[in-house]
Design a binder for these strands. Structure first.
Lengths: 101, 101
DNA sequence: TTTACATATTGACAAATGTAAATCTATTGA
DNA sequence: TCAATAGATTTACATTTGTCAATATGTAAA
């Protein structure tokens, strides 16, 4: 369980604007200009968030001419779900001594 | 879909030290002093992270005498999973016009 | 009621993050 | 080739976050 990678993946979900962007992308692939229309942030700020979303693996971009089309990446989402499971499922390894009794 | 709440929940997973703490708690309930032993951070810093983990709903604390025992909260985890699903599942509402063609 | 101990809170500070203006790059169309 | 457009990058700055020392709070033991 790589802590650095885990933190990187979930950076996608811990900022309100990025959550908003993901919600918009649930409706299907959208280009940056369309996202920009629906958000109240500047173009460089959108670009910054799109980079973080792509770095996390939750979103992928596709360039078509002048336009960048972004969509939610199901493989990335699947990985996030596996990490979330892995992080929160109990592990039954060696019997733990009770703590501070 | 509340963006603020979503961001709050996933704050639990976007810092390396908190990921580390969650991994430690997978072995079962642990008191703060035990967590402190296994991490290389100060006591106030641990306390700070435990507050964020509790605020996110992923961890709950139980006070017993001088000690605080922390454990992963399965209800909180379940909610996080639902939010993750909700954020990343495609919605099939009105047919979207193709973007920027 | 002291004393010791576990943990939380406060305060200060450095590092990371979010933001927008200005600029750069790439692509299209005239 | 030149102008226009979409988006990324750079720069600067304000806010947020992570960190620890010092202190406060609460509990148990002497």
């Amino acid at each position: 369980m790589d802590q650095r990678k885990t933190a990187l993946i979930f950076k996608a979900f811990c900022d309100e604007n990025r959550v908003r962007i993901l919600n918009l992308l649930r409706g299907g692939e959208k280009c940056a200009c369309r996202l920009l229309e629906e958000m109240s942030i500047s173009q460089p700020t959108l670009s910054h968030h799109m980079r973080i979303l792509c770095d996390s693996g939750i979103v992928v971009g596709r360039k078509e001419g002048k336009w960048m089309h972004y969509r939610i990446c199901s493989e990335g989402v699947q990985l996030a779900k596996e990490y979330l499971d892995g992080l929160t499922n109990a592990q039954t390894l060696d019997e733990e001594k009770p703590c501070c009794e």
